Simulated scan of single mutants.
Amino acid sequence: MDRRRFVSLTAAVGAAGVLPLNWTAARPVTTGQQEKRYQKKVSPWPICLDTATIRPASLKDKIKIAAKAGYDAIEPWDGELQKFEAGGGNLKDLGKEIKDLGLFVPSVIGLWNSIPPTKEQFDSSLKDTRNRMRMAAAIGAEHIQTIANNAGENYNQKWMAARYREILEIGISEYKIHPALVFVKYQPIKTMGQAMAIIMDANHPSAMMIPDTYHMHISEGGFESIKLLNGSAIAIFQFSDAPASPAIADLGDSHRVYPGDGILPLQQILRDLKATGFRKCISLELYNPEYWKQDLQKVAETGLAKTLEVIRKAGV
Rank of each mutant, 00 (worst) to 15 (best):
K313F: 01
I109T: 11
K293I: 00
L273P: 13
K176D: 14
P46C: 06
K119N: 13
K158C: 00
G315R: 07
D212T: 00
Y38E: 08
G70M: 09
D128C: 02
R5T: 06
V257L: 05
S283F: 02
H143A: 06
N90Y: 01
S206L: 15
A161G: 03
R256L: 06
G87F: 08
R5K: 15
A305E: 14
K68Q: 15
D250H: 11
D241V: 06
M192F: 14
P28L: 05
S173W: 00
H255F: 09
Q34A: 15
I65P: 05
A148R: 01
L228E: 15
D128I: 10
L273M: 09
L304N: 07
I198E: 04
E35T: 11
K127H: 08
R55T: 10
E120L: 06
M1K: 11
G221R: 05
I269N: 07
S254H: 14
G88K: 03
S124G: 12
D61R: 14
P116F: 01
G303V: 02
L264Y: 07
I144L: 09
V13G: 02
D100S: 12
T31E: 13
L308Y: 01
N113P: 03
K306C: 05
P179E: 06
D61E: 15
Y287N: 11
R165D: 02
N156S: 10
W77M: 11
C48G: 10
L49K: 02
A138R: 09
S240M: 11
G193R: 08
E220N: 14
A233G: 04
D212R: 05
L126F: 03
W292P: 08
I311W: 06
G14T: 04
G171K: 05
E142G: 07
E309H: 09
K62F: 09
G102R: 11
V29I: 14
G140D: 04
K119S: 13
K280S: 11
A138D: 12
Q297P: 06
E301M: 10
H178E: 13
Y175I: 00
K185W: 08
M135C: 12
G70K: 08
G222K: 05
S125R: 12
V7W: 14
G95Y: 04
D250T: 00
P117R: 00
N131G: 07
D241P: 10
W159N: 03
A161P: 04
D250W: 04
I172N: 03
F239H: 09
K96Y: 00
G252P: 03
Y186E: 14
Q187W: 12
A73M: 10
A195W: 05
A26C: 10
D100N: 13
K41F: 08
F278V: 00
E85P: 11
E301W: 01
I218Y: 01
I98S: 01
G152I: 03
L49G: 07
G315F: 01
